[in-house]
Design a protein around this nucleic acid. Sequence first.
DNA 1: TTGTAATATAAGCCAATAGTTATATAATGA
DNA 2: TCATTATATAACTATTGGCTTATATTACAA
Lengths: 125, 125
Amino acid sequence: MIDKTAQILKALGEPTRLRIVRLLKERELCICELVVVMDMSQPRISQHVKILKQAGIVRERKEKQRCFFSLDDRLKVGKLISMENLMNTNIEIISELQAEGTRLQNIDHNQQVIECRNQLEPVSI
Amino acid sequence: MIDKTAQILKALGEPTRLRIVRLLKERELCICELVVVMDMSQPRISQHVKILKQAGIVRERKEKQRCFFSLDDRLKVGKLISMENLMNTNIEIISELQAEGTRLQNIDHNQQVIECRNQLEPVSI
DNA sequence: TTGTAATATAAGCCAATAGTTATATAATGA
DNA sequence: TCATTATATAACTATTGGCTTATATTACAA
C-alpha cells in the first residue's frame, strides 16, 4: 500500500518521466513521437515508459506496429500533476505546457513515419 | 522547474520517507521520536529527513538540543499526500494513520529522554 | 566538568538506476 | 521477399541511493 504509493511517486520523480507524463497529459502519443519531441534515444524513452506502465500511470494501446500511450484515468495522475499548482511556482509550468501543446499540434498520427521523424523539432519542457 | 517538481516527487517516492511525511502530517516530531516510532537507526532517519528538508517538504525548529520537524505549509504536500485518495486503495491508509495517531498520543515532548526512548513501541505503518 | 542524549555526518558497501550501444522481433510496404 | 519502421530488450558502464558503523558536535544535567 505505502509501497504502491511510493512506486507511483518515484516513477513521477524523475525529470524525463515527468516530462513524458506532462506530454501524455496533453494527448496520447506513441514511442516514436516521444522520441522526436523529446529528442532522446528510443531505448531511453521505451525504458522510461515501461516504468510508468509498471507503476500503473500509463496505459498502452497497440495500433499496427505502433504503441500509443496515454495516462491511465483510473489513477488520477493527471489531476495530481496539475496539482503542481500546490507547489510554489506553477505559472511557468502551465505556460510551458501550453507552448508544448502548440508544438504537438504538428503531429498527425496518420502521416508517414518519415514525416513523424522529420516534421517535429525537439522541444524542451 | 521540472526538476524541482521531480525532486519533490522523488523525495516522496521512497517508502521510509513517505512514512515520515505521513507521521509529520499528524504532528510535529523530532528525530528521536521518529527513531522510536519507526524503529529505525538514528542516522537512517536523519538522512531521510535531510532529503525531505532539501526538497522543501519539511521545515525544522530547534528547541534545546532537539530538532523538531513538520511539514512545510508553503508546499501543500500534506494535501498532496491526502490526495492518495486519488489513488486506488485509500481506506486502509486512513485507518492506519488514525491508529498511528493514537500511538503518538503517548509522546510528551516535555518528558525526559529516557521516557521518550522507552515509552513507545515500534509501529508499522 | 563530565557523562549522556540528540543530532549530524563521514566512510564504506551493495543494490538500484539511468544511460549507452547492439541486437532481436514484428509489422509494413515496395 | 526484402528493406525499413517501431518497439523491446539485453549487456554493459557509471552514477546514485540507502543502509550500516563509527565518529564528531552540541546541549543538558548531575
